[in-house]
Computed example of a mutant assay.
Amino acid sequence: MSGTTNAPEHEELGEGHSPAAWTAVIIMLLGFTLGTLFFWFDQPWLVAIVGGGLVVVGLIVGWILKRAGYGVGGEKYQPKGH
């Protein structure tokens, strides 16, 4: 091996720091929080409908935002400096 590559020495992978990822995670966390609350109040149908439904909605919204260009590497994504 020659030891030379065309890639930079440290390449930022993004790790999900995008509006699409943050929006999806916040919606899913809300679903888990409400699901836990309804579980505590012994309302299993609300756990399934509200808690589970929001997790699915979060996945769909994150996917839509990524396709719209708000994901890591998307044309509307602007990475922030650290």
Rank of each mutant, 00 (worst) to 15 (best):
M1Q: 06
S2L: 04
N6F: 01
P8I: 04
E11T: 15
E12I: 07
G14S: 06
G14H: 11
E15I: 03
S18F: 02
P19L: 04
A20K: 01
A20D: 01
A20I: 00
A21L: 09
T23I: 15
T23F: 08
A24H: 01
I26R: 06
I27K: 01
M28K: 06
L29H: 13
T33A: 12
F38H: 09
F38G: 02
F38A: 01
F38P: 00
F39Y: 15
D42I: 14
Q43K: 07
P44M: 11
W45K: 13
W45I: 11
L46H: 07
I49A: 10
I49G: 09
I49Q: 08
I49Y: 08
V50R: 01
G52Y: 00
G52W: 03
G53R: 03
L54V: 05
V55G: 09
V56W: 10
V56G: 14
V56K: 15
V57I: 15
V57A: 09
L59E: 05
L59K: 02
I60N: 08
V61M: 04
V61I: 11
G62Q: 00
W63P: 01
W63V: 07
L65A: 00
L65K: 06
L65G: 00
K66Y: 02
R67L: 05
R67N: 12
G69M: 08
Y70V: 00
V72M: 04
G73Y: 05
G73H: 04
Y77N: 06
P79Q: 12
P79H: 04
H82V: 07
H82R: 15
